[in-house]
C-alpha cells in the first residue's frame, strides 16, 4: 500500500490539484448567473447554462426546443470518429512496420514520427492549404499530367478537415500501437502463420490481441483531443461551422458566457468518462485486464 502511495501518488496528486480542483471550480461556475461582461455573479445560483443545451430563448424571447448546440456536439463527434478511424487505418501498418525493423532503426523511427511536430500548428495548416488549394501542389500536379482539367475541390470542406486532423493526430495513434507491438516475437507470428495458415487469421489471432492495448490508448489519444480541435476546422474547413472546441472557447471569449462554457465542458467530460467506465467494466466482466 505504501508503494501505491509513492508510485501512483505523485501523478494522482498532480492531477487532483491542477485538474480536479479547477474542474470542480468550473462545475460551481456552471451554476452561477453569468455576468454579461464575462465572469460570473458569485452566489446567484441558476440552472440557465444547463437548460441552454436543449432549450433556447428564441430571438423573440419565448422558450423553445433547440438543437443548435446538440448538432454542433454531434458534428464534432462524427468528425473525431472519422479522424480516429482513418488514423488507425494509416497508423496501424506504420506501427507494425516500425516494430518489425531491426533494433537500431526503431528508435530513429520513433523520432521520425514526431519530428514534423516540432513545427507550429498554424504553419503546418498553411502548408496543407498550399497543397490542397485550387492551384496547389496536388491539383497542379494532376492538371499538368492531364488527369483532370479542372481543379478538384480539395480545400474548405470536410475532406480537408479530415486530412488536417488525421495529420495532427497520427503520432498519437502510431506510437502507442508501436510500443505495444514492439514486444512481439516474430517467431510467434511465423508459428501462428503455420498454425492458422493465412496472414489475415494470423493477424486476427496473434497480432491484433497484442496490439489491442496500444490501439485503445491510441484511439483515446486521438478521439478525445480531436473533439476539442478548432484551428484545423477553421483554416481547412472554412470556418463555416463551429466545433465543440470553438463553441466552448467562444463562451469564454467573445460570448462572455462562462457558465455555459463550463457546462458544455463538463457535459463533454461526463460523456467521455461514462464511455470509458462502461468500457472498463465490460472488459473486466469479460475477464480482460484493466
Amino acid at each position: 500500500m505504501l508503494a501505491n502511495i509513492w508510485l501512483i501518488g505523485p501523478a494522482v496528486v498532480a492531477i487532483v490539484i491542477l485538474m480536479v480542483i479547477p474542474l470542480s471550480m468550473m462545475a460551481w461556475i456552471s451554476i452561477q448567473a453569468r455576468s454579461y461582461g464575462g465572469g460570473v455573479h458569485w452566489g446567484e445560483l441558476t440552472g440557465d447554462a444547463w437548460l441552454r443545451f436543449v432549450f433556447e430563448r428564441n430571438l423573440d424571447d419565448s422558450l423553445s426546443w433547440s438543437f443548435n448546440y446538440l448538432s454542433i456536439i454531434l458534428r464534432s463527434f462524427w468528425l473525431s470518429a472519422l479522424t480516429t478511424v482513418i488514423s488507425l487505418i494509416v497508423g496501424f501498418p506504420t506501427a507494425f512496420f516500425m516494430a518489425t525493423r531491426p533494433l537500431r532503426w526503431r528508435t530513429l523511427l520513433v523520432f521520425m514520427v514526431t519530428l514534423p511536430f516540432w513545427t507550429n500548428l498554424l504553419v503546418r495548416n498553411y502548408a496543407w492549404i498550399l497543397i490542397l488549394r485550387d492551384h496547389g501542389t496536388i491539383n497542379g500536379l494532376l492538371m499538368s499530367l492531364g488527369v483532370i482539367d479542372r481543379p478538384l475541390p480539395l480545400l474548405h470542406n470536410e475532406f480537408a478537415v479530415a486530412v488536417g486532423l488525421v495529420y495532427s493526430f497520427l503520432p498519437f495513434m502510431v506510437l502507442p500501437i508501436y510500443s505495444s507491438l514492439e514486444k512481439i516475437d516474430l517467431r510467434l507470428v511465423e508459428a501462428a502463420f503455420d498454425l492458422y495458415s493465412g496472414r489475415w487469421r494470423a493477424l486476427r489471432h496473434v497480432i491484433l490481441p497484442l496490439a489491442k492495448p496500444g490501439i485503445i490508448a491510441g484511439c483515446i489519444l486521438v478521439f478525445i483531443p480531436a473533439l476539442g480541435s478548432y484551428v484545423t476546422p477553421e483554416l481547412l474547413g472554412g470556418g463555416k461551422t463551429l466545433m465543440i472546441g470553438n463553441l466552448i472557447g467562444h463562451q469564454f471569449g467573445a460570448a462572455r458566457n462562462w457558465p455555459f462554457g463550463a457546462a458544455l465542458g463538463l457535459f463533454l467530460l461526463a460523456l467521455v468518462l461514462i464511455a470509458m467506465t462502461a468500457y472498463a467494466l465490460r472488459t473486466r466482466r469479460s475477464g480482460g485486464t484493466q
Binding site: V16, L23, I224, G228, G261, L269, V272, M276
Partner: peptide, 14 residues
C-alpha cells in the same frame, strides 16, 4: 479515469 482526465475536457475549461 483520473489519469485520462486532462484530455477529456477542451483545454480552455481547466
Amino acid at each position: 479515469a483520473l489519469v485520462a482526465l486532462p484530455i477529456t475536457v477542451p483545454e480552455i475549461v481547466p
